[in-house]
């Protein structure tokens, strides 16, 4: 082989392997070297003829990588469109409400051009595009994940089963109570994501209450100094709930997997809530004083719950609420799984 031929082969192989996953490159390079030299020997053809026969390296690489050329397949496309609509509309609504709030609290903004350009228009556009991207990513992950789910489901099979289908083979419709509503899961997923994004990117929504008075004051019920610790725990909490909702969405019905996921997620939520509310300084200890200063009033009435702000009462109320709701969710899941979860799919 002359240098020139070698050069052409190298170029060809490079054009193929740069398009395939990194860890396969070396082996594919060896394979192609073997193939090309075999073809040249056996067919007594020149390098150019051999490479022409092999065709465009791009097509070759595409066959090697074997990926399908879409992000979201037909199976998920319908849901994707529906969720996208709900998500974009609710984001827009959310944005509009925030714009109205800002305008009400400081009407002066209405006279500023930048308010319309930045807050009303650009911010809306950014949040819509961001939401679009996040949802697309989420569904692309579903698509990818589902491919694997289907592969593992094909364990018990025979050709006969694959081929002959009769109506008698229709699986029983899962009992109404055994079904998990996709809508509920999707709403749960969308809201955990939205809440999570807001926590991370717009913490002022949660940490501050603007009270309009003679001057602007930031009064927050949450502890600002501990926010660096509180935020990650809240985000982990949301991530756990998100994972659970995705699990439920994929399963579509109550079964062991869903039950285990629900129990794990519930226990995690309770533990994290205890850490947040009982161990960490979650609440702003000066909240009541700051509130009183802001409103120029005194909270002394025995009936006013705020009087007990620092006694742990608020934490206890929240904690009891969270525990009751979580335990109830787990109980419902366990009950439905035991009652209906064993029906054949």
């Amino acid at each position: 082989m002359t240098m020139e031929k070698n050069d052409m082969m190298e170029r060809y192989i490079y054009e193929v392997i740069r398009r395939v996953p990194k860890k396969q490159r070396e082996e594919i390079r060896l394979e192609l070297e073997e193939l090309i030299s075999d073809m040249m020997e056996q067919e007594e053809a020149g390098m150019e003829a051999v490479l022409t026969k092999l065709g465009n390296p791009r097509d070759f690489a595409q066959k090697y990588s074997g990926r399908h050329n879409y992000l979201i397949g037909p199976e998920y496309y319908g849901d994707y469109c529906w969720v996208m609509k709900v998500f974009l509309l609710s984001t827009l609504a959310f944005h509009m409400i925030s714009v109205i709030f800002q305008a009400v609290f400081s009407p002066g903004l209405l006279l500023e051009m930048s308010f319309y350009v930045k807050t009303v228009f650009t911010d809306a556009l950014i949040s819509l595009i961001g939401g679009f991207g996040m949802l697309t990513l989420l569904f692309a992950v579903f698509e990818h994940y589902n491919v694997r789910v289907q592969i593992t489901k094909e364990k018990n099979w025979s050709v006969e089963q694959l081929k002959t289908w009769t109506p008698s083979k229709l699986p029983p419709v899962p009992n109404k109570k055994a079904r998990i509503s996709r809508g509920d899961c999707i709403v749960g997923i969308v809201f955990s994501l939205m809440f999570g994004l807001l926590l991370i990117f717009a913490p002022e929504w949660f940490t501050g209450v603007n009270i309009g008075g003679k001057e602007w004051k930031l009064v927050s019920p949450f502890n600002h100094e501990a926010w660096n610790v509180i935020l990650p725990i809240l985000v982990i909490d949301l991530a756990v709930e998100l994972a659970n909702e995705i699990m439920k969405l994929l399963a579509g019905r109550y079964c062991k997997k869903v039950m285990i996921s629900e129990i794990l997620s519930g226990v995690t939520v309770i533990i994290l809530s205890v850490i947040l509310l009982k161990v960490l300084p979650f609440w702003n200890p000066n909240f009541v004083r700051e509130l009183e200063e802001a409103f120029e009033m005194q909270i002394t009435s025995q009936q006013d719950l705020l009087l007990y702000w620092n006694d742990g009462l608020i934490s206890n109320i929240f904690l009891v609420g969270i525990v009751i709701i979580t335990v109830a969710e787990i109980a419902v899941t366990v009950y439905r799984t035991c009652r209906y979860g064993n029906e054949k799919e």
């Binding site: 097509d59 070759f60 074997g66």
Partner: peptide, 11 residues
């Protein structure tokens, strides 16, 4: 076609 066969073998 060779460019079909090789990827197929890997798959």
């Amino acid at each position: 076609e060779t460019n079909t066969l090789y990827p197929l073998l890997r798959r």
